[in-house]
Amino acid sequence: MALEYEESKQKIIEALQKKSKSKSKFYFSDLAKILDAKPREAKKIVTQMVQEGILEFWSSGSTSMYGLKGTGKQAGAEHEDG
């Protein structure tokens, strides 16, 4: 069954905000687990959240992670929060 977008979005935002004190970047599999969905279903939701500017990518070059836009040290420290 396809996931309902708005509901899934809220689930991710709540879960990420809850953990935001200790963690600002998450693996894709963490997000899929929050949604309790198959990776391909979860990807559709996550991609749309990136398109809407709710989530942002973080990349080390070899690994990619996701975070709520503007959270974590990086944005401020690198002056990328404008």
């Binding site: 990349s59 990086q74 690198e78």
Partner: peptide, 19 residues
């Protein structure tokens, strides 16, 4: 430093932040 949040809109790869 290690990695970064920069990229082009809609793409999660192709750009690697280096500071």
């Amino acid at each position: 430093k290690h990695g970064g949040i920069v990229g082009v809109f809609g793409y999660g790869g192709g750009v690697i932040g280096r500071y």
